[in-house]
Amino acid sequence: MPLLRSYTPHYFSIDDIMATQERLPCKFEVDVLRLGEYCRNQAKIIMSNTTALKVAKKSFLDPSSDDEDIKTGTTLELPYWLARALCNRNRSIVSVNIPRIYKEAYREILKAEASVVDLHRLCVYFYEFGSYLSGFNHRDSTEIGNLLVQCFKDRFRLIMDWAQNSSGDTSGSGRGAGSDPTARLDNLERGLLITGRSSWEALEAWLSQGGGRPIGPANMVVNHQKRQLANASVS
């Protein structure tokens, strides 16, 4: 895949689909009728919910209830794509609340020491999700928008330094890589780091060996061979 392309969200973008799946607290402003399946499945979803946001206790709908409707006033954590469609200027089926990591307390921390915050743990899609949130007509919208820009600027030096200092491994998912500071990057920053690092490595190799470097096997071929080898050693 053309991995060096700069990222802009589009309909088919995996990153954008992942980012729009992040959840936010919503409160139903009207009754939504005949959603039997929806209610019954809620319990299961809440159990398997792996997003960083914690589900508030009151968002549990009684799984044994035969109630097929969502009553006005129910609060639930909905993924962004659903919340966005149900909440807009003309007619709000739900009202949304901003997740706490974008609220003032966290904004202050990010303003003060952006470069040491573990964004990956706060939200893997910190910038993407944040910029969608700033699109809601919420009183904090402008603040969130400004925060994202400032935060990105403050952390850019880190990304550039890490990209140009080839020690450390970011090829892994970053989870569990406790000692690796690049594990603190959110998805967008990580993308920049990876492209920056690969071009830097090419430059370093050129400086030490010149342009007469050998032709190598294609990336996909290398990955495939590695996997074959790993499979062979397992079986």
Partner: peptide
């Protein structure tokens, strides 16, 4: 492509 990509993202965020 680090700098042009970073500028793209910054522009997009703002």
């Amino acid at each position: 492509p680090l700098l042009p990509h970073a500028l793209d993202q910054l522009h997009r965020l703002s």
